[in-house]
Amino acid sequence: MTAFWAGARLVRRRLVAASSALGLVVALLVVLVVALLERRTGSRLATDRVLTGVALGVVLPLLAHGVVARALSGRRLDDALAELGRHGGDRRVGALGVVVGLGLVLAVAGALIAAAGVVVVRAPADPLLARDVVTSTWIGALAGVSYAGFFALGSTLGKRGGGRGVALIVDWIAGAGAGAGAVLWPRGHVRNLLGAEPVLSLPQWSATLSLVVLACAYAALGLWRVRR
């Protein structure tokens, strides 16, 4: 258990910095600006476009990639736990602490980004505002958690964790479709939850399930690749 907390503390220590807060502020600002522009169009689909487009389609994956890279100091997942391993900590347990810590951070970030997008696009008097904020918040949080697992797995690939970058590109390209190629990546399922074309015509509840299963599978695979 010591190794788990050591891993979680490592995430906190590396992320608690002014530059991390600045990154989140920039991400929120980008979403707010795009949401304001969408609001001006007056379209009924403005909320969907903001969420599937910039908020959870572009900003969240980029932010997640940056957060994971920073938490691991730009290294592989196992290399980032070198000190813990050296002193007899189980690197795999430590990696679990890191993944859980990253999941929490990105869940909050995803929820904030999604909620900010909806609040700005919808008028304050809109009766659907509260319901949409709640819905988009949990979708954002779930997307954040799945991206945490996804990039943690990517961080176990490559000499310096370069698999993270590959994972980002693959998610963008393959996850943009609705065919079988989008099944394994978070983006397609997040888009399904936000009302876009479903992956393999699966119902929305299955997208929630898929994101949960994928997040667990990514994390489990990532941990499996870390030496004890």
Partner: peptide, 13 residues
């Protein structure tokens, strides 16, 4: 030692 945390805990390095 690379796969056994207990061994690493008892190694002075």
């Amino acid at each position: 030692p690379s796969r056994t945390p207990d061994v690493r805990a008892k190694l002075g390095l």
